[in-house]
Design a binder for these strands. Structure first.
Lengths: 126, 126
DNA sequence: CAACAACCTGGAGCGCACTCCAGGTCAAGT
DNA sequence: ACTTGACCTGGAGTGCGCTCCAGGTTGTTG
């Protein structure tokens, strides 16, 4: 009754992560306990797919491979690492919020610079 | 009457960019027409400092070296490239806005995942 | 059963943005 | 005159996160 087992190609399609990268994540310990068919071919579970989506989200917002590996290592250990895992997410949350602020500042700066292009004046700087 | 000429060390201090990186930017054409003292040592102008700050802001929000070099090349050419330079900034603006949205989505996902840690339940996924 | 696609492994290679280094020059202080 | 420290150049090295490859196995399709 294991709902859907995804082939590597299906998994790549589903998550938008290439097959090579999926294997790389597994090698690096960011994706654990991936099942295999009798042929030795990987069969990804729905939970794997969801985790890869989370993983990508964390990566895209600047969490490093090392941090993600650490998080996965903790998850492997089990329940008594919940607090640390929670802390990792909370710390990353703060970081993402800072990134949003940084980008809002960037928008203001870009707008400021753009104002010189829309202006009648030909001022170049500041 | 050139207000303040900054030494490399002062420039690094002012902008938060290392001396090595400043030289690297210059080599790569991201920082042009830097003056020299009679000794051959660089003397950065206030405008250089401001530009490096802008440059860092654009880099930090994902503009590549190649794009920045292109922008600088255009600025070197002069007035008739203003439209293209404006367009580059407007394009980047759109990108930064998308980054903000991406990060807001990330926050929601992190919060969702955090909710499982704060819950009474010990559910692990989704 | 032949051909072909999808998958496997271990390991090498790549692009980006720095970062560091060797070997030399220049300017100021003692 | 000598030391010290900031700077110069050209070029090599680094770390990260993939990405690609060779050489082999498996599974499907006609």
């Amino acid at each position: 009754m294991t709902t859907t087992a995804l082939t590597p190609a299906q998994m790549a399609d589903r998550t938008g992560v290439t097959i090579d990268t999926l294997r790389y994540y597994e090698r690096e310990g960011l994706l654990t306990n991936v099942e295999r068919a009798s042929s030795g071919h990987r069969r990804y579970s729905e939970d794997d797919a969801i985790w890869v989506e989370v993983l990508r989200c964390l990566r895209d917002t600047g969490m490093t491979m090392a941090q993600l590996r650490h998080y996965c290592d903790l998850a492997e250990i089990g329940e008594d690492t919940k607090d640390e895992r929670q802390q990792i997410l909370m710390d990353h949350r703060v970081l993402v919020e800072a990134q949003i602020e940084e980008r809002k500042t960037a928008l203001r700066l870009i707008d400021h610079k753009l104002s010189f292009y829309s202006d009648f004046s030909g001022a170049e700087l500041s």
